[in-house]
Amino acid sequence: MVMMGYVRSNYLSKYTYDVKLGEGTFGCVYKAFNKDSGEVVAIKVLKYNQDVQNNLHEVMVLSKIQDHPNIVQLKETIAESNVLGLVFEYMDCSLCKLIRDVKLGRRVCSEVWVRNCCFQILKGLDHMHKSGYFHRDLKPDNLLVSRGGIVKIADLGSATEFKPDAPNTEQHIGTLWYRAPEVLMESSYGPTIDMWAMGAIMAELFLLKPLFPGIRSTDQLYKIYSMIGSPDDLSWLGADADLYEFPPLKEIPFVKLMCHVSKEAFDLMAQLLSWNPSKRPTATEALRHPYFKPCYEVQTT
C-alpha cells in the first residue's frame, strides 16, 4: 500500500496520518498523531524488501548514538505487511527550510542565533564521534529545528562506524556542496569530513546560500579552491599527491563575503574549512573555540 499526500487510514494503525513531510528513494516521511496519547510524531515509511539490512542501518546507528538532546530521537520501529515504519520525534522544519524562509523574508540570521545553532550541531557531532560513528552527509536538509530553537542531527542512513585501522574509501557519499576535498579527491577519510561540512553549513547560515555550489566533482573542487585558495601542501594525500595540481589562486577573505560577522566566527570557519583534514578541529576542539564562549556563559548564569 502506498500513501500519498493527506492520508488517514489504519496503516500502522497506532497512528493517524496527516501531511507528507518529504519523499525520497527510501520512501516517504509523514506527520502523524498517536491515537492514544495525541503525541505528534514523524514516521519514515521505508520500502520493506529483500534489502532489509540497508533499511535497518539507520535504526542500528541510532540505537548506538541517539541518547543525546541534539540527535533526533527514534521512538519505535514498526514492521507491517511490506513496509517498515521508523517513528521519530516531530521537529518543526529543516535548517534548509529555515534558511530559505529567512532569505525570502529578506532578513539575516543573527550571529547570536548562528552561534547557538552551530553549538548544538557540534554537541551532537561530538557525541556521535565519541561513540565511534560519523554522519557522512551533514547538510541543512539533515538538520532539524524546533520552534523553541532546538537543533537536532537527523537522517543517519549514511552514517558509518569509524575504524582508524580501516579508513573509509567509499566515494559516493555526502551531498556534493558539503563534500570534503579528501572525498572529492578519492582519498581515505574519517570524521573530519563532518567537520568540513560543519564549516560549509556555518558559512551558509551567514550567507543564506551555499558556499560551494558545485555541479559536479571537478567543479566542486574548483569552487573550493577559488574561494579558500589553492592548497599549499597535499602531503596528506600520500602517494596520490602527485596526481593533483592546482592553479595558484589566493583565498577570498570571508570578510568580503559576510558583513557584521565576528573575527572569532571567521577564524572558526577557516579552521573547519582546512584542506588538510588533520588541521581541522575535532568537534570537541571546535566547542572550545572562543567563538562559543557566550554559550558557556549563558549555561552558567
Rank of each mutant, 00 (worst) to 15 (best):
M1G: 12
M3V: 13
G5F: 06
Y6V: 13
Y6N: 13
V7S: 12
R8A: 11
S9H: 13
D18S: 10
G22H: 07
E23P: 05
E23W: 06
G24F: 02
G24T: 10
S37N: 09
E39K: 07
E39N: 11
I43V: 15
K44L: 08
K47Q: 07
Y48G: 02
Q50M: 12
Q50E: 14
S63D: 15
H68W: 09
I71L: 02
K75I: 10
I78L: 06
S81C: 09
N82W: 07
G85T: 00
E89F: 04
D101F: 00
K103W: 05
L104H: 13
V108W: 06
C109T: 14
S110L: 12
N116C: 09
L125Q: 01
M128G: 00
K130E: 08
Y133K: 00
R136G: 02
L138T: 01
D141W: 01
N142C: 05
R147C: 14
V151S: 02
A154D: 02
A154S: 13
A154R: 01
D155Y: 05
D155E: 13
L156C: 07
T160V: 15
T160P: 00
T160N: 12
P164L: 08
P164T: 06
P167F: 11
N168K: 15
H172R: 15
G174P: 00
T175K: 07
T175R: 08
W177T: 02
Y178L: 07
E182A: 05
V183L: 09
L184Q: 03
E186I: 12
P191M: 04
M195G: 00
M198T: 14
L205G: 03
P210K: 04
P213R: 08
R216F: 12
D219L: 09
L221C: 04
Y222M: 05
Y222F: 07
Y222A: 05
I224H: 00
Y225S: 01
S230M: 11
D232I: 10
D233M: 06
G238P: 04
G238E: 08
D240L: 11
L249C: 11
P253T: 14
K256F: 10
L257V: 11
C259M: 12
H260S: 13
L268I: 10
Q271C: 11
L272D: 00
S274I: 00
W275I: 03
P277I: 03
T282A: 03
T282G: 05
T284W: 06
L287I: 08
Y291F: 14
Y291M: 09
Y291G: 04
K293L: 13
C295R: 03
Y296R: 12
Q299N: 11
T300K: 10
